[in-house]
């Protein structure tokens, strides 16, 4: 095992979250590798600091305050529009996204995506937060294919 691999797992070694085989391998590496054992020491120092960290406490009535606010707002859970979409099928959603993107293709796809993500990361975040990832991923795969095809034609 080489050092760059070992270093990524020192954190888990310190937490005791490695499987036995990997743990033994890493431990025997550390026995002779000065660099990695030094790394482990440094990680442990910082972790001790994290273990000692203190948080102010929440007030006793926090939960009832949250529930009060929810009831007061008479907020009700929003309908999940993605669920509705998924009823119409993956290809429909993908087709919709493709149509949307195709409108911008003449501007160059990359610029459009960059502008959307940079100007309003919230939108992207929201899409990822609420859309079932399998639908999104399949949609994106299809979009990528189409974009590749367009690129080839150019």
């Amino acid at each position: 095992m080489d050092c760059s691999f070992i270093k990524l797992y020192l954190e888990l070694l310190d937490r005791g979250q490695l499987n036995k085989e990997l743990e033994e391998g890493i431990k025997s590496h550390i026995d002779y590798c000065k660099e990695c054992s030094q790394e482990l020491e440094e990680i442990r120092e910082i972790n001790n600091l994290f273990n000692e960290i203190q948080l102010p406490s929440l007030p006793m009535d926090f939960t009832s305050r949250v529930m009060g606010r929810i009831r007061e707002d008479s907020t009700s859970p929003e309908k999940n529009i993605w669920q509705e979409f998924s009823k119409w099928g993956v290809s429909f959603v993908a087709a919709g996204l493709i149509m949307f993107l195709l409108n911008f293709v003449s501007f160059d796809f990359n610029i459009v995506t960059l502008t959307i993500t940079e100007k309003n990361p919230d939108i992207i975040n929201k899409v990822f937060e609420y859309a079932p990832s399998n639908i999104l991923n399949r949609g994106f795969e299809q979009i990528e294919e189409i974009i590749e095809n367009i690129g080839d034609r150019r």
């Binding site: 102010p56 929440l58 007030p59 926090f62 305050r65 949250v66 606010r69 929810i70 707002d73 907020t75 009700s76 859970p77 929003e78 309908k79 999940n80 993605w82 669920q83 937060e129 609420y130 079932p132 990832s133 399998n134």
Partner: peptide, 23 residues
């Protein structure tokens, strides 16, 4: 942090229907 935590829970409640067991 208390206010933010409260906002997060309100948001979670409002969007509870978007959780469909995908994770």
């Amino acid at each position: 942090a208390q206010d933010l935590t409260q906002d997060i829970f309100v948001r979670l409640y409002k969007n509870i229907n978007s959780f469909q067991g995908q994770s």
